[in-house]
Simulated assay, not measured.
Amino acid sequence: MHPTRTTRPRALFAMGRRHRDALFPAAAIRRLAAHVDIDPDHVAEDLAHEPALAEVELLITSWGCPVIDADVLARAPALKAVVHAAGSVKHHVTQACWDRGLAVSSAAAANAVPVAEYTVAAILFANKRVLDIGGLYREHRAPLDWARRFPGFGNHRRTVGVVGASLVGRKLLELLVPYDLDLLVADPHIDAARAAELGARHVELDELIGASDVVSLHAPALPETHHLIDARRLSLMRDGATLINTARGSLVDTDALVSEAATGRIHAVIDVTEPEVPPADSPLYTLPNVLLTPHIAGSLGGELQRISGSAIDEIERYCSGRPFAHAVRPSALATSA
């Protein structure tokens, strides 16, 4: 990227103020200040009228970052790199940035960890029928014959299908390998050998849906993945199977999911929806076989420190002349989140 330097690059926070406060507490600011020249109290939420851009070499971005377009770049002649303390850079890194040759890094790998962890918990609870049994236990306040009510319940040798070998999908498979599960993966961008390296068997999507006790979605939101899970594919799911979506709401046809779930035939754990907050009268809130959570699978609370730590690691690499460990390649954006 550049030789080891003797002066610290000028850096600027470009994100929502509340995200800066959550991601970079005092300890993180002290570590950051050892490598870059930055005003920790100044956060650019509008780059269109940001005078500090004239001298900035490094932008530290996160959720709420304004779009970095050609007009912004014209006011930032010294800008060479963007370190994103969050996941996808598609919302703010434009083609003008790639044309300029900016080095871009993302903490998507760090953000993948809690999503995968949430999904592991959802899978294990789904196969163990924890939510169903918990509700019945609360209702009857006495033990019932759980094995009779839920024949074959449990996680031993159950089949889990992972849709998308994304960062989250790969992390999920890594976390699931130690369990006694049969793992399938569907992704047109990997082959059987790569799937085997991940501990799974590569199959086509329809086969995965029909063979799995749990179908977990980890594909990016792209035109070709819009409503990837539609009424036809929902109908392929086994009776009693569970659909988990911690990826993007647009992957699932919500109306079709509501119709299928309303029959009681399948279960769902939904952390992302289309629209992002369902209408107040949506059956997703009340269907007993649907667990709806408000986009909490990703980094929140103390998990944010993993993201800022990853970003500062990247800044240390940049300042010492080393390449980013989590560089974003423009060629990969067409098939990633």
Score class of each variant (00 low, 15 high):
Val214Leu: 01
Leu287Asp: 15
Leu23Asn: 06
Leu175Ser: 07
Glu303Asp: 13
Ile133Val: 08
Leu257Phe: 12
Asp281Val: 10
Asp71Gln: 14
Ala33Lys: 09
Asp313Leu: 04
Ala262Asn: 10
Asp132Trp: 11
Asp69Gly: 03
Val56Phe: 02
Gln95Glu: 12
Val83Glu: 03
Glu260Gly: 07
Thr273Leu: 02
Phe324Arg: 06
Glu174Gly: 14
Tyr118Ala: 15
Leu32Gly: 01
Pro25Arg: 08
Asp239Cys: 04
Leu291Tyr: 06
Glu117Leu: 06
Asp213Tyr: 01
Arg138Glu: 10
Ala112Val: 05
Pro66Ser: 10
Arg238Asn: 02
Pro330Leu: 12
Leu175Arg: 14
Gly298Tyr: 05
Glu204Asn: 15
Ala311Val: 09
Ile266Thr: 03
Ala121Leu: 14
His49Ile: 04
Gly154Ile: 06
Ser62Trp: 01
Val113Thr: 08
Pro178Cys: 03
Ile60Arg: 05
Gly134Ala: 13
Glu316Gly: 07
Leu79Cys: 08
Thr61Leu: 10
Thr242Gln: 15
Arg75Ile: 11
Ala297Thr: 09
Asn111Cys: 11
Leu304Ile: 03
Leu183Glu: 00
Pro151Arg: 14
Ile123Cys: 03
Ile312Cys: 05
Pro143Phe: 10
Glu207Pro: 00
Pro25Met: 09
His267Met: 15
Ala256Arg: 01
Ile133Met: 14
Ser299Met: 07
His189Thr: 10
Ser62Gly: 15
Ser250Glu: 11
Glu224Pro: 00
Asp191Phe: 02
Arg265Gly: 03
Gly240Pro: 07
Ala103Trp: 11
Lys171Ser: 12
Arg157Asn: 07
Arg194Ser: 12
Leu47Asn: 04
Glu314Lys: 00
Gly240Phe: 05
Arg17Glu: 10
Thr263Gln: 07
Leu131Phe: 13
His2Ala: 13
Gly240Val: 02
Ala280Tyr: 03
Arg149Met: 10
His91Leu: 11
Gln95Pro: 11
Ala268Asn: 09
Glu276Thr: 08
Arg194Trp: 04
His49Met: 06
Glu303Leu: 15
His295Trp: 03
Ala142Gln: 12
Arg141Glu: 09
